[in-house]
Design a binder for these strands. Structure first.
Lengths: 148, 148
DNA sequence: GACAATGGTCAAGCTACTTGTCTATATCGT
DNA sequence: ACGATATAGACAAGTAGCTTGACCATTGTC
């Protein structure tokens, strides 16, 4: 395999990803959610579809249950999520987004769209779609991904 | 601009970048550098070409001078870098890689190449090169990028 | 119905960062 | 040339987000 491609690809990919995270973070903050950090976005991405337990959230974030529990406590205190009793298991709790949590999620999507828009101007719509398709093929099987 | 592309691209890019970081980190550790974390790789990338001062390193890493100074102290203690007097400025010090630092840098490049190799199998050499070219066009002006 | 396994929390400790302060050297204005 | 200000870096203390360890409540298993 071409050595120059192998050596140049990782820095480019990581650099672009870092810029994207920073850009979305700024966009989310600019929309009034200044008490959140990128890590919270990864949590929202897991919680948005149908909620999740603390353990599931921990696994998604790649941290311990205790750390996830602390983050949930923080997000509850800030009004982004709430703990509901789990319907089937009295031990477990279902963590779900509040309306404020959903509002933040929508803000993150807007910020992401804003961040990507210039890319379409640079590459063109078609090339950008191909880029998306390439990334889709490289992405590990249906693992859940962050919103921002 | 196509909304589905705008919404799917960021998670795919961030997810792939996260996998890449984890993969390179594992590769570096497997090659015997178990006392380093991904953040150190970003530092090495800035130091490798010609060394740098603590302030320059701090700006590259996006942290305070004090934090960069602490990381340098840690890397000195572990034998990866050394402080040299700056030739032109008696206040400043030039931080440069030691032989061990270079060995680690080479290990990181190997690990990165290992991580990217499967991508060529999925996309093909030509498509992968186009992907690299696309990322190059999206990368902000010649900003320095991490090795892993 | 005992008993291990699981979901979650409480408590304490660690680490990588932060802000604040300081010294030494360099640069600028007069 | 010299005093004022800016810059490079280190020292010290505080903080935030993670870790490990211990624990309780509920569930599933033999």
């Amino acid at each position: 395999m071409d050595r120059t491609v192998a050596l140049s690809l990782p820095p480019l990919l990581l650099g672009l990803a870092a810029d994207l995270v920073r850009s979305i973070d700024e966009g989310v903050r600019a929309r009034g959610f200044e008490d959140l950090r990128p890590a919270h976005g990864y949590a929202f991405a897991r919680l948005a579809p149908a909620g999740a337990g603390v353990g599931e959230l921990a696994e998604h974030l790649g941290v311990t249950k205790q750390a996830a529990s602390q983050m949930v406590e923080e997000l509850v205190r800030k009004g982004y999520v709430e703990r509901q009793p789990h319907p089937d298991d009295a031990r477990a709790r279902l963590i779900v987004l509040t309306e404020r949590g959903w509002a933040c999620t929508r803000a993150a999507e807007q910020a992401a769209a804003d961040a990507v828009r210039p890319w379409a101007a640079v590459l063109g719509e078609d090339r950008l779609r191909e880029l998306r398709d390439d990334l889709l093929r490289l992405a590990p099987s249906g693992r859940l991904r962050p919103i921002w």
